[in-house]
Nucleic acid binder design. Sequence first.
DNA 1: TAAAGATATTCTAATATCTGAATATGAAGG
DNA 2: CCTTCATATTCAGATATTAGAATATCTTTA
Lengths: 94, 94
Amino acid sequence: MNAIDYRKVSDFFNVFSHPTRVEMIIELLKGKKCVSDIRELLELNQPNVSQHLSLLRLNDIVDWCQEGKRKCYFLKNPQLIKVIFDVLKKNKLL
Amino acid sequence: MNAIDYRKVSDFFNVFSHPTRVEMIIELLKGKKCVSDIRELLELNQPNVSQHLSLLRLNDIVDWCQEGKRKCYFLKNPQLIKVIFDVLKKNKLL
DNA sequence: TAAAGATATTCTAATATCTGAATATGAAGG
DNA sequence: CCTTCATATTCAGATATTAGAATATCTTTA
């Protein structure tokens, strides 16, 4: 009973295991952004942005809302992300 | 100046992005263990354990000491790991 | 409803990662 | 030193992930 789901944990961390996604998440920590904002900020092509966002979506890290023609992405639980990144900062990992 | 090294961050998270390594780390959180202890606990073959441990070593998550014929592995910064996993627990991710 | 802009999906090639088998290295005891 | 036990490294095949091109799907507005 109450066995740890190691896969669930590793899937969560896997979201953060690519530099592009880390950068996306750090940008989203500053506030909601639409796909083309992210595309320009990170200087990536659109499908690449979209693919990484879809992984973030599937892992419940982000959600989005429609704003006109744009889809605006935001962190579902910014507090969680903030806490984790603060821990990294304290440990000189960020 | 002070640019974030996204690769460094993603490399750190990558360590935790495999269920076997998550399980290893959780076991090491309970205390120092030698390779064969880990092998038996996780029911893995020896090279596999060794490979995952080497990744943990290269990323400065663990260190080891010789005890007789055995190599005993331990977390370099258990406090950091503990804090991160506590955050996960609070968020029902663990 | 047609057109245009914004985003998503699919596909492919390149690359990275994982596993397990074989082999190598290193330590302790005789 | 030689043997044995413990661990590490190397290698090859299988699998997964990534970037980018081509294409499809929404959404809004005319």
